Simulated assay, not measured.
Amino acid sequence: MHAKIVAGLAFTAALAFAQPVFATPDWKAVAQALGKSGTELPDGVYRVGLPRTDLKVTLDEIEIKPAFALGSWLAFQTAGDKDAMVMGDLVLTEDEINPVMKSLAGSGIEITGLHNHLLRAKPATMYMHIEGHGDAVKLADSLHAALEFSKTPLKSAAGASPAAVDLDTAAIDSIIGRNGKASGGVYQFTIPRAEKITEGDMPVPASMGTGIAINFEPLGGGRAAITGDFVLTADEVNPVIQQLREHSIEVTALHNHMLFDQPRLFFVHFWAHDDAKTLARGLRSALDKANLQRS
């Protein structure tokens, strides 16, 4: 009898400390509401890419590919029974900012950042970071309604042949110390930080915007343009900026993307164009100043 009582108490305690199991939102319904399908990633995040293929942007006489620096995105993760947390980065022209913001605010979706990522771009683009909580389909409906105040393409495009990346990617991988991937004619890296990152009480994995992003756009002859952002703690910001500047990589912005993140994170954006391997070595020297997951 005594053993049964102990076992029963242990079972009750286990239930008290067990993590609740929530039903995953219907991602197909989210895609239908948003007007654009996404990809469910291994970490459980449902991520939707919304490249601004409608924009023709140049910087230093270089035409910016959508996958290079014009990629709006939204990332959803389960945050309750069929509920979700959504975070994202919306690429907007200046005249689109206030109509989109008004629509988002009216639906309860928060604006967590609004700023430039690039300098001298023509036309100028701004980047609006957002966060929302609630029913996943209702969030998608609200986001769709807001994005209709922009010219963001919201229909899934027919599959196209992958664009070639005219770079020595093996050499770049070796220098960076990570393996990148080709997407939309651009060679991309997403490098997670070592710490667990949260926003409020929710984990925020790299796929929701907390990974260091590095993009190479080939320019021919082994040259490339680079852009992206370093995700840094306060004590890392200036050592990284120093390394970027010492390697002739322009720092174009320093700001937050979230409001209640732990640890507190800052985003350092950059731009340069030169020999791709030279640029990779400069980026690697800056990466060495950050606390990253081991590759």
Rank of each mutant, 00 (worst) to 15 (best):
E217I: 07
G282R: 03
G211H: 01
V45D: 02
H144A: 10
F270H: 11
A69N: 07
E236G: 03
H117T: 04
E63M: 11
S174V: 00
Y46N: 00
P162I: 03
F270I: 08
D95P: 02
V237A: 10
I97F: 07
Q262R: 12
S161V: 13
G113H: 13
K277I: 06
L167D: 06
I197G: 02
E63D: 15
I97V: 15
L254P: 05
N238W: 08
G44V: 13
G184L: 00
L9C: 08
G209F: 07
V237F: 05
A10G: 04
T24D: 13
L265W: 00
T278I: 12
S174M: 06
T125L: 09
M202V: 15
D43I: 14
L114F: 08
L55N: 02
G282E: 00
S37L: 01
L254S: 06
H129N: 13
D275C: 05
L219T: 04
Q243Y: 07
V237Y: 01
Y127P: 05
M87W: 06
L147T: 02
E131W: 06
F216C: 01
D274A: 11
E110T: 12
V204C: 05
T233D: 09
V86Y: 01
T58E: 13
P99I: 06
H2M: 12
A18W: 13
G113A: 15
F267M: 06
L119T: 11
M85K: 13
L15E: 12
K65W: 00
F11T: 12
F22T: 09
I62C: 00
P192V: 14
S72P: 03
D173A: 12
D81R: 14
K82T: 12
Q77N: 05
F149G: 03
N179S: 13
Y46A: 02
D168V: 14
D173Q: 09
E131A: 15
R52W: 04
D26R: 07
S183C: 03
T39P: 05
S183G: 10
G106N: 10
V268L: 14
V86I: 12
D95W: 13
L55I: 04
L279S: 02
K28P: 02
V48P: 04
L9N: 11
I212N: 12
H273K: 13
A290K: 05
